[in-house]
Computed example of a mutant assay.
Amino acid sequence: MESRAIVRIALMAAVIGVLGMLPGVMLPIAMGVPITAQTLGVMLAGIILGPRHGALAVLLFLFVVLLGAPLLSGGRGGLGVLFGPSVGFLLGFIPAAFVAGLAMERLKALPVFAAALVAAVVGGIVVEYACGVFGLMVMARMSLLQVLVATAVFVPGDLLKALATAFVAEASYRGYPAAIASRT
């Protein structure tokens, strides 16, 4: 791996960490799963870096969090985050970034904005929710219907994050076309 790729991976991991510094919103209906800005970083990681490097950026971020860095919403970090209700969403960051990057690669025929929007929705929402719903069902001992109702409140915000991701991808591409790995 070339040093430029390593730097981009590290920078994207840092962006995800910084987004965790923004205050999260706790909703009682979601059993302690906060609304955070970090999924925006996960979507951007896959779309900007591509599937492999995007997933590596998320893995680096998660490694630092599991070492104890308080980079998750609310200043959480350490191994304890693996035992909370949001573990499915947290571990879902990895496949979400990978699938978002893969979708972005496959949608080369579309304009950058449209491709990034679709990729963010597929990876950052569909895949992320599939992992998160499963984790919430296991950790909170809730039924599928209960979890779907509880997580429905997150969808509008995540759609806005997908839209923001598409705008950032479009602006990045216009300013520096090599910024989007799948378009070079």
Rank of each mutant, 00 (worst) to 15 (best):
S172T: 13
S86W: 04
G74R: 13
G75M: 09
A130K: 05
K108M: 03
G132V: 05
G135L: 02
E128N: 13
G77Y: 00
L66G: 07
G175C: 08
M104K: 12
F89R: 04
G123T: 07
Y129P: 01
F134V: 15
L117D: 07
T165N: 06
G84F: 00
V126S: 00
F89N: 04
E170K: 14
G84Y: 00
A120W: 09
V127P: 03
L160F: 14
A119R: 03
L72Y: 09
F113S: 05
F89P: 02
V168K: 08
A109P: 00
V64W: 06
A69T: 10
Q146T: 05
M139A: 15
L117C: 11
L91R: 11
L117Q: 04
V81G: 07
A152I: 01
L90Q: 03
L67P: 04
L60D: 02
A164Q: 05
V58D: 01
L62D: 05
R174D: 11
A169M: 10
A103W: 12
V121H: 08
G92F: 03
G74W: 07
A162P: 01
A103Q: 03
L71F: 14
E105V: 06
G101N: 12
E105K: 12
F63H: 00
A109H: 12
A97V: 06
V99S: 06
V58G: 02
A120N: 02
P177K: 11
L163T: 14
G88S: 08
A120K: 05
M142Y: 01
A130W: 02
A162G: 13
L160W: 10
L59G: 15
G88N: 08
F167Q: 06
V99T: 10
G75T: 06
V168G: 04
G80T: 08
